[in-house]
Design a protein around this nucleic acid. Sequence first.
DNA 1: TTTTATATCATACACTGTGTTCGATAAAAA
DNA 2: TTTTTATCGAACACAGTGTATGATATAAAA
Lengths: 265, 265
Amino acid sequence: MFDKKVTIFPERVNNQCFDNCSIPDRRAGFVRQKRGFMKEKKRDRRVSRTRRLMHEALMALIVEKGYEAITVQDILDRADVGRSTFYAHYQDKDELLLSSFEHLRTLFEEQQQALLAARQTGRNPELNIVLELFRHTGEHHRLYKAIAGKQSGEMIMKYLHRYLYTLLIGPHTEMMKERVTPPVPVEVITHHLVSSLLSLITWWLDNNMPYPPEKMDEIFRILSTPTLEAAFGRKMEEKIMSEYAAGSVMAFYSQFIDRGCCPGK
Amino acid sequence: MFDKKVTIFPERVNNQCFDNCSIPDRRAGFVRQKRGFMKEKKRDRRVSRTRRLMHEALMALIVEKGYEAITVQDILDRADVGRSTFYAHYQDKDELLLSSFEHLRTLFEEQQQALLAARQTGRNPELNIVLELFRHTGEHHRLYKAIAGKQSGEMIMKYLHRYLYTLLIGPHTEMMKERVTPPVPVEVITHHLVSSLLSLITWWLDNNMPYPPEKMDEIFRILSTPTLEAAFGRKMEEKIMSEYAAGSVMAFYSQFIDRGCCPGK
DNA sequence: TTTTATATCATACACTGTGTTCGATAAAAA
DNA sequence: TTTTTATCGAACACAGTGTATGATATAAAA
């Protein structure tokens, strides 16, 4: 199933947005129109409509039967879209799913920028972001379970892993500079921290959320703080960790859910 | 691919050994012979031969192209075995793979018993078992990478996770008794510890083992010890952890490798 | 509006891989 | 030897994938 290489962060292959972006069209007679330099083309309404329908169908089906069990035909039937149309847009269902996440990532990065700017003006309300993450996950556990739980493929988790890793490795390297001889390579610490958070979320979902989000937030801190202290060799400021690590996941997940799982809507 | 439920510890469905055990035969005309009460039947030589060939073929192919890419036909060709014969023994290739691990688990448990007995007599040589684990993994990294790395399915990792979890949850619960109010539920600690170890192994393999086993051993201790101290609320004896956690993996892996990957041999 | 461009549709097709069936044959056990 | 049964091989139905093509519908451009 996942024999082919799963490129987590491709070079913006199918670019992020569904309404206003270039379409890598695979169909025989189709030619990429590209007259005009840097002239932003308005997308054909049919394109965004089709993509939106397919994304909606995929998301609905994921909740219903889990990602792995979905066939391309299922998506076609649900979206009421022709077979060749599907393959004109995406290579396979993996690419369709990744496309959603690519889109969300762009949205998230923009929001992150806004947050960073707001933070610099001074008054930020000091959220407990890990807690919000678990609350949110719990509220939409059906979908989360479908995409992150045991029954689903590992692609999404790998994507998230890579995503968080990329986000964290910079700050971690920065922190590490204060140490002369790091006992643990920063790459390993980062990998370890991300694995811990994701495995905690997965555990929580797979076990039907036996504890409230508050408890999970506490657990995450108890488990990760001493390790980070030991690895970095100094007291961690929770703010830094929250901002870069859990905050990202939360915002990422939030957008995925809040927009009704259909980016083009 | 992995739509169906992956039963990690089935009720001894295909029972452990290949030469001297009952065969759950799926074929139409086949009837389970069962005359005689508790009378251990010698297995038909053809059965053990066939199974051995199929296991050998699977293991060779895993190293060559990774588990996911293998088709049943590949196994058939390599093992020089008929199609119907394969399905007379196993439901699919997942079951064939699990069968290997089930077998190894039995062997491992017997050896564990022997070790435990030897330990009680007094003189044990105090191995650093985590270190041995990494050394061993490194020596056979091609196979390990194929079964535990990025390119392979998650089935084996889930199996190992479940296995180690089962092994650890008992001792952990015991240790937890000394605490009045555990800040972190023992199930979560155990899940976390196992995830950490496996993610560390995976990272090491996926990054072509950039550090020597000695370093990985050190890293594992640095990362896991403070967390366990925080969670259990008291100083951990390394002996306990080594014996129950990493020792299991090492022995488990060792047998898998040492026996040439073909249990029936 | 008319013209042009192109996205979509329906259908058909080749292909890969799965899992089953069944009679004939070979090999092991009794 | 006789009986039992594991294996073979070939055929088959089935599900799913990804491609190709001409006709049609619809959007954009003139």
